[in-house]
Amino acid sequence: MTVTQPILGSTLPKRPSAIQRAWESFAIVFDSTVGTVGVAMVAFWISVALISLVWTPYPANATDFIQNESPTLTHPLGTDHLGRDSLSRLMVGTQVILVKTRLPDELFGYTLPFGDWPMPVGVAIWGVLGSLTLGSLLGLMAGYQGGWHDTIIMQILDALIAFPRIVLYLVVISAMGQGDLVVILAITITGAPGVARLVRSLAMDIKTRDYIRAAETRGESVWYIMFWEILPNARGPLLVDGMLRVGYAIFAIGTLGFLGIGLPPPDPDWGNMVNEARPFIFVTPWPVIWPSIAIASLVIGLNLFADGYREELTRYQK
């Protein structure tokens, strides 16, 4: 048999590497003004967190200074009611949220290695990763497998969703006590139902596509289809959702801190800083203002980021 039709496209460029592709798919966020602003805000706080790991103007818990001082040259953001440097506390406050997680010495009876060394990446991020993982698993099972899987999973998730979020936090924390890992767990549990609903609806849409039929007619296993055929195509919305959830998580951690049941000391906690300084608000508002702005700007930044990214994503899909 002779080749009768021409071979198409022999001069296509080479495929970019996986990292390049990942970056390219991320970089679309810079097409959106809103998204770019968001990225900048988030990047700012991450840099602050990283810098604070190696340098702060003063030790965060040192009480050596004049109390309730308004901003001066030596204390650019002023001091709080115990005479601690607000800037240093603000900087250190980013750490547990964004870049480190303090592990207990012992977990379920096992002594953890590495002694006092914290685990990299902050509580908010671990919590969101947790809910993304758990939620994706449940959502995929409910959405792709359908039937009684769907009924049971959704029923349980509905039950979880029915809890006002803060109440769930309160219950988890009153049940398990304070600690970085407990906060991670609480974020995971409160976030998973939402992720699962999202992934479920995505999976129900994606599973109608012909390429899923193709995989099924190849006799692929349910797990292969869920994790290799469906999940990769949900990554855009999942990234957006994850971003928003990091925002919620920081929001929630701040709130818990404000209520006095958030991340345990000794590291300063923004929510708690607001709470402690509140009674002195008539003396000086600064110690309340700074952490408030910090939380708001970080959460807003993440939201803008997610918004911009989503906008560009839908545009590129059109």
Binding site: T255, G271, V274
Partner: peptide
């Protein structure tokens, strides 16, 4: 967006 993303205790204070 800004209003929603600001925790209640921040906006309250």
């Amino acid at each position: 967006l800004a209003a929603t993303a600001t925790p209640e205790f921040v906006s309250g204070v």
